[in-house]
Simulated assay, not measured.
Amino acid sequence: MARDSLNSQNDNIYDPDQDPEEKRNLRRQYRSLYKSTTEDLQDHAKDLTAEQLVEKVKQSDSLFDRVKGTAEATLDSNFLLAATQMGAAKARAMKAGAGAFDVDDFVSRLVTFMSRNQGVAVPEDLDSDNEQDYSGEPLDYARIGRRTLAKSRRIPVMDFMLGPLSIEQKKRAVAKRATLQKDEREKKKPQEITESDITRSENETTKNVATLERILQQQVGKTNLFRLIINPNDFGQSVENLFYLSFLIRDGKCALEFEHGQPVIYVSEQPSEEDYAAGLRKQQMVMEFDMATWRRAIEVFDIQEAMVPQRPKSIMRIGGKWYG
């Protein structure tokens, strides 16, 4: 089909800056094609000819020539799925002679053909009134393969067929579950925790963000990101420092830039509503910071002391009692 030739071209590459009007027009045409196809599948599946179905696929091919985004590619795959369902419906509606095509009869004849002894000649029409039991013999797939190769130029592969022809249906064993009777005397009412039992603590995140902001304001000029956040003695607090720094960047109180391949942080003036109205946009990024990066940064930048003071380990306190 035409899709095979498109794969060898470099025109269908991802382009996030594709003209929005062109993308809207492309989506509109795809939805119209998909709607007409699904309506034909529901209402006129028997009246639709194979030529009309091929014509719809060709229209999809011409639209796919202009696809450069994932949303349009999804619409294309939805249409191909609908066209495949329509093709399957047409195949089921095919007539062979006076009756419909019987899949079970075809499989039965196929098993019979592959179960014949090699020395017995098999008639071309495979019509025989002699019923034999070949269930104990292995199926000779090579025999049907030689017949198929005479009609096809495709290279045979291991997974060409969709599984074995004879499948034993597994019966699910129903296990009887015994009802567990609990002794009412063993039940214990949980202890109630009152508000006085819970020791309230201040918001640690807000406090640590303010501490990091104060340290940044004391610095002159730009500061290396890793020198600021890394605690050479505690990897966990280094990750926490990066977390707290993200709040300052989000609020525009400091800025992140790259100079000579190194990330630097400096204090900036917080943008106002007028700045956002003038076109200023927030940008987000995801930074990976694992223990290997932490150790490498300590070695490269020779970090001996932490700029952010070591924080004591936080302890969760609930009144000093044990509840169980």
Rank of each mutant, 00 (worst) to 15 (best):
E124N: 14
A100R: 05
A88C: 07
S60D: 05
R31H: 08
H44G: 04
L110R: 00
N78H: 10
K95V: 15
R28H: 11
D65V: 06
F106L: 10
A91Y: 03
A71S: 15
D76I: 02
A121K: 10
E72G: 08
K95F: 00
V57H: 04
R116P: 01
A98D: 15
M114W: 02
N130Y: 08
D40I: 02
K68N: 12
D125L: 05
K23M: 10
D61R: 15
R27S: 12
T70V: 08
A73H: 15
F106Q: 07
G97Q: 03
D19W: 03
F101H: 03
Q85E: 11
S108H: 13
L33K: 00
A50Q: 09
T37C: 05
D19V: 08
L110N: 03
L53E: 02
L33F: 00
G87Y: 03
R24F: 14
S60M: 10
R27V: 02
R109T: 03
L80E: 09
L33H: 01
D76L: 03
T74I: 09
R116H: 10
T74M: 08
Q52C: 01
A45I: 12
T70C: 01
L63G: 02
D65Q: 10
M86L: 14
M114I: 04
K46G: 02
D129R: 09
S32W: 02
P16W: 05
Y34F: 13
D40V: 03
T37Q: 02
V111G: 02
F79I: 14
E137V: 02
S108R: 13
N130M: 09
A88Y: 09
D125E: 04
S115M: 05
R28I: 00
Q29W: 01
K90M: 10
A93D: 15
K58H: 05
L48F: 06
S128P: 03
E72Y: 02
E72A: 10
N117E: 14
P20H: 07
E72I: 06
R92P: 05
Q42Y: 13
Y14H: 13
F79V: 13
Y34T: 12
D76P: 00
E51H: 10
S36G: 04
P16V: 12
G69W: 01
L53Q: 11
M114D: 09
K46P: 00
E51C: 06
D40E: 06
L126H: 04
K56C: 00
S36W: 00
Q18H: 06
V111P: 00
R28D: 15
N25R: 09
E22Y: 01
Q59V: 14
D15P: 00
V120R: 10
V107M: 08
T49Y: 05
L53D: 00
